[in-house]
């Protein structure tokens, strides 16, 4: 039985991902002196905070056995709505925040209902959501709108000192807070465990008397909420709204979740793994920036390679898991 515990396909990818992150970071530290500065580490979080937030929502969707392709577009739509309201209607940040979060949730609710009630494929429904939200951005404006509203700029430039030379931005704090909420939801609430159960076997979950329909819809609402919150962070990070923001972010979020050990088939994954997944993407980016001679597209190449390796790894683990099963 120790063998099964060691090869527990649920946690081994997480162990490997974390080791890989440590390895990459160690490589950077050996190669570049400045890499060891704590600010470099914190910057991983600052520069990728929005992706953490979006990917946590995505992780829930994937664990439930679904997929959400609309997240990048909802991020873009959020930046557009925020920028327009701030610049042209002079709303302040705190008036805009609840509105855009509500829009994100409603978007998720709409897609969740289509998927659950009408038994449609999540892939197609969220693909529709992706086009719809992206298209709406251009209805608002085809140009980038810079934000000069003071309540935004104050928050965007606000830095919380951590020690002497290190500081963290609002988005870093929000990302960590949301991650904590994600871990709590996934592992310590009925909702989270029901998501896992649905991903494991939806029919069983229903026969066990779990609220399958409600939970599945809520997963998309949660993802919509995370996308909108991620969109707010992007707005702060970019200090602008633009229909071309967050292009392809849904795929980054999926990649982060998978590299973090979440199985695309559902039922298996850790929210913390997703953080590590995002940080790996971030550290590769940082390494390429430090190197200076490589084009930023090498990040993509590295991510592509990693994804192949991780999918293969998951398949192998799945097989060994099955072997254990039949041995018993």
């Amino acid at each position: 039985m120790n063998f099964a515990r060691f090869l527990n396909p649920r946690s081994l990818p997480l162990v490997i991902t974390t080791s890989l992150f440590a390895l990459l970071y160690g490589f950077g530290a050996v190669s570049y002196d400045a890499f060891l500065s704590p600010q470099v580490f914190v910057n991983l979080l600052i520069d990728n905070g929005f992706l953490v937030v979006v990917a946590v929502g995505m992780t829930f969707v994937i664990i439930s056995g679904g997929i959400d392709l609309s997240v990048g577009s909802i991020v873009a739509l959020t930046t557009m709505v925020s920028a327009t309201l701030a610049q042209q209607h002079h709303w302040n940040f705190w008036q805009i925040l609840p509105l855009v979060l509500a829009i994100g949730c409603l978007f998720g609710l709409f897609m969740g209902v289509l998927i659950q009630v009408f038994k449609l494929q999540a892939f197609i429904v969220t693909l529709g959501g992706m086009f719809l939200a992206r298209g709406l951005c251009y209805v608002i404006s085809i140009d980038s709108i810079s934000i000069t509203e003071p309540s935004f700029t104050v928050l965007a430039e606000y830095r919380i000192p951590l020690g002497e030379e290190t500081f963290v931005s609002t988005s870093g704090v929000v990302a960590i807070a949301l991650l904590a909420v994600g871990v709590y939801l996934a592992h310590y609430t009925r909702f989270g465990r029901t998501v896992y159960a649905i991903g494991g076997n939806e029919r069983s979950a229903m026969l066990m008397g779990l609220p399958v329909a409600k939970t599945k819809i809520m997963v998309y609402v949660l993802s919509g909420f995370c996308s909108a919150l991620g969109g707010v962070l992007v707005t702060l990070y970019m200090q602008s709204g633009y229909g071309l923001h967050a292009l392809g972010m849904e795929l980054d979020a999926i990649a982060a979740a998978v590299i973090g050990g979440t199985l695309l088939t559902g039922g298996v994954g850790y929210v913390v793994g997703t953080l590590v997944g995002v940080m790996i993407l971030g550290v590769i980016q940082t390494l390429i920036v430090f190197d200076g001679s490589l084009s930023s597209w090498w990040t993509r190449i590295a991510i592509g390679g990693l994804l192949f390796v991780f999918c293969l790894l998951q398949r192998l683990l799945d097989r060994s898991g099955k072997k254990i099963r039949t041995k018993n």
């Binding site: 009925r190 076997n201 066990m208």
Partner: peptide
């Protein structure tokens, strides 16, 4: 068996009534 193979044994017994 209508349980969820990915959850722990304990969870399969108590899920829904944690």
């Amino acid at each position: 068996v209508n349980l969820c193979p990915n959850l722990s044994v304990a969870e399969n017994i108590y899920i829904g009534r944690f």
